[in-house]
C-alpha cells in the first residue's frame, strides 16, 4: 500500500493541543489505510516503503493520536493536557483509568507527569486509559 502525503493532518495537533505550528511544520504527514504517519526526514522515493516515520494518528469517527507521537511532541502542548501526580501516573502506566475531573475538553488528551509525557488518554468524565499494552508498566519494573 502507498503512503499519500496529507499535511492537513498536522492541523489536528495544532487545534487539539495547541502545539505551535512551527513544531508541526517539521513533519510531513502520510496516510496509508486508516493510519497517518509523521515523518521528519526528507522524502526519498524508495520503492516499497514499509514504514515512514512513526504512527501519529488512527482514523475513525474522530482521529486518535498515538501515544508514541504524543511522547515526541507532547512537551509543546498548551491545552488538553492532564498532569498526574507520581502515584496516579504509575497507575495510569499500569493501564488503569483515573477517576476525577480535569480541566480539559472531552475527547483525546495528553497525559503527563512532571516532564514525562505518558501518552494518550480519553477524557469523558474520567480519564480512560489509551496506553498501548507494549508500554504498560509491569510489576517486575522499577
Amino acid at each position: 500500500m502507498q503512503f499519500l502525503k496529507k499535511n492537513d493532518y498536522g492541523k489536528y495537533f495544532v487545534d487539539r493541543f495547541g502545539i505551535p505550528e512551527e513544531i508541526i511544520e517539521k513533519y510531513t504527514f502520510w496516510v496509508r489505510g486508516k493510519r497517518v504517519w509523521a515523518f521528519s526526514g526528507e522524502f526519498i522515493d524508495v520503492k516499497d516503503i514499509e514504514v515512514l516515520g512513526i504512527k501519529a494518528l488512527s482514523l475513525g469517527r474522530t482521529p486518535k493520536p498515538s501515544t508514541a507521537f504524543l511522547r515526541v511532541i507532547g512537551k509543546y502542548a498548551k491545552k488538553n493536557v492532564v498532569n498526574l501526580d507520581k502515584e496516579k501516573a504509575l497507575k495510569f502506566l499500569e493501564g488503569e483509568d483515573i477517576e476525577g475531573n480535569f480541566d480539559v475538553e472531552q475527547g483525546y488528551v495528553i497525559v503527563k507527569s512532571n516532564n514525562d509525557i505518558l501518552g494518550c488518554g480519553l477524557y469523558k468524565g474520567s480519564l480512560i486509559n489509551q496506553i498501548p499494552k507494549k508500554y504498560r508498566y509491569e510489576d517486575t519494573w522499577l
Partner: peptide
Amino acid sequence: GGNLERLGITNVIITKK
C-alpha cells in the same frame, strides 16, 4: 519499528529488501 517508536525517532524510512 518498535525501537524507533519507543525512542521517538521520526526521520527513518524502513524498507524490507
